[in-house]
Amino acid sequence: MRLTVFSTRRVGWLVAAALALPAVSSRASVDDAHSFALEAAEPYVKQGYQIREDYWGGDLGATEKKAVRQQLFKGNDYWFWMGTEVEQAKVSVHIYDSDGKLAEQTDSWQKGHFAAAHLVPKATGSYFIIVTVDSSSEDRTHWALVYGFK
């Protein structure tokens, strides 16, 4: 299931019109979460990390997790930064290798509605980045995940 705001195109004008308002609202909130993820990433730009324009986002209930599968390359140094606009929320992000083994560096961190995971891959291949809303004052909490590399 793809959750972009553009996914209503096949269901006709009326349904599209009915869905348009909540879609716009949802988009705005994920954009807010994205801004916070970028805020977490910002200090790392000075350390030479290139932050990607593309990002992942969505919403989760408290204690809910999601996974993103991403191709990473041995020789690079990666950070993944997660953020949400819900300041009372606590979020976390962790990286696992393709065998499901926790792979991140020990300087990965979590601080309230920001979290980050650091990886220097030992092998080129797919990794799982698991994002979690550990707790939140909201039923659904928007989140965004950006990554950078050097």
Binding site: R2, L3, T4, R27, D31, D54, Y55, G58, A67
Partner: peptide, 12 residues
């Protein structure tokens, strides 16, 4: 800040 690459099938 506007491109939504919302995870869908790759999420669980």
């Amino acid at each position: 800040f506007f491109k939504l690459t919302l995870v869908g099938s790759c999420v669980f």
